[in-house]
Design a binder for these strands. Structure first.
Lengths: 184, 184
DNA sequence: CGCTTCGCTCAACAGATGTTGACTCAACGA
DNA sequence: TCGTTGAGTCAACATCTGTTGAGCGAAGCG
């Protein structure tokens, strides 16, 4: 009826993206170990061997799937603490599956742990710079840890008390707590 | 030389405890999936088949290993919020391996997730009772989530900024933040 | 059209892992 | 002393899973 004879290169790009998308979803839901190449292939409606041919190994598939554009979080000037707090609302919203996959795997997959630790360390350093007082680094680390815990409890564990709460309400309720950490 | 001919029942209890101890350690370090019966057996210096004979399945071994005496956290009377905050220092110290095993597995092992969610929900309910204001449940959930996040970042991920910090210092720095959540 | 390229599949291997059943041997009770 | 019990071992099975190499068939190109 329509019959758009997609070119070979185009088809290739599509199936590759279909595999990556399926991988992200399953990695996010089950974590690295419990995700099987066969399951990803089935979800992408493709033979398992093709996944290997494209990505070489399960580990590389994971790396490609969870790779995030990595927007420079703070370019140049240091943002004031209040503005940093303002961004929290965004982080409480539905996270990209690549991030969820990373978080889901970070406690049981050493490479994911390393990656997350690095990312969080970076956020801590930025926040510490923005704060600047005596034990700024410790307080910044506790702020980041707080965000981490709330995200895990909300998105991955599904604490019943957080289950129905909107991201805005969570961010709003959390704000005084984070401000207390940011100031003396 | 010494030759204390331990009785059969006594030997049985010892090896069983040796297996459970090894299981706790490895579950805490690697999580449920990556822990193998063979590894546990090797650490306990025992044949893998014996582990099965004693515990029936890997799942049951996990349940027995992470079973915690479950001290009634708040018996009878509701403790004041300040006293609850005082207990935080204890929770920041080195956790029992059973707890670590549970936390390590909670993101990738559905049963562990269920168990942890239940336990945290219980803590939330208790805290909410102690707080009592309008959105007490949400604020209690955020307090518990904060503790969860800090514990994960400190004990499981090893954030560099928290790595060298003493439990007391962490608890002290965290206190104003939690108090801000507990009050309006 | 005929040859090449390449997206994709099929079948299979190799290793790891949970689990089982037969067996050994020392402790135990009569 | 002798039969029984039960702790502990050995070898094996069945399955799952990452990974590989040969092959098919259509798109691309001259």
């Amino acid at each position: 009826m329509e019959g758009t004879p997609t070119s070979r290169a185009e088809r290739r790009r599509r199936t590759e993206e279909r595999i990556l998308s399926a991988a992200r979803a399953i990695f996010a839901e089950r974590g690295f170990q419990r995700t099987t190449i066969r399951a990803v292939a089935a979800a992408a409606e493709v033979d398992p061997a093709l996944v290997m041919q494209y990505f070489g190994s399960k580990q590389e598939l994971f790396e490609q799937a969870v790779r995030i554009p990595s927007i420079p979080p703070l370019d140049g000037e240091l943002a004031p603490v209040e503005e940093l707090l303002g961004r929290i609302g965004m982080k409480m919203g539905p996270l990209p599956q690549a991030t969820l996959a990373m978080m889901r795997s970070m406690l049981t997959h050493p490479d994911a742990a390393e990656e997350v630790r690095g990312k969080l360390d970076g956020q801590v350093a930025q926040l510490a710079d923005a704060i600047g007082s005596g034990d700024a680094e410790l307080r910044a680390a506790l702020m980041v840890s707080t965000m981490l815990g709330v995200t895990i409890a909300h998105q991955l564990l599904g604490l019943t008390a957080l289950h129905g709460a909107s991201p805005e309400r969570i961010a709003e309720t959390l704000r005084p707590s984070l401000r207390a950490l940011a100031e003396g």
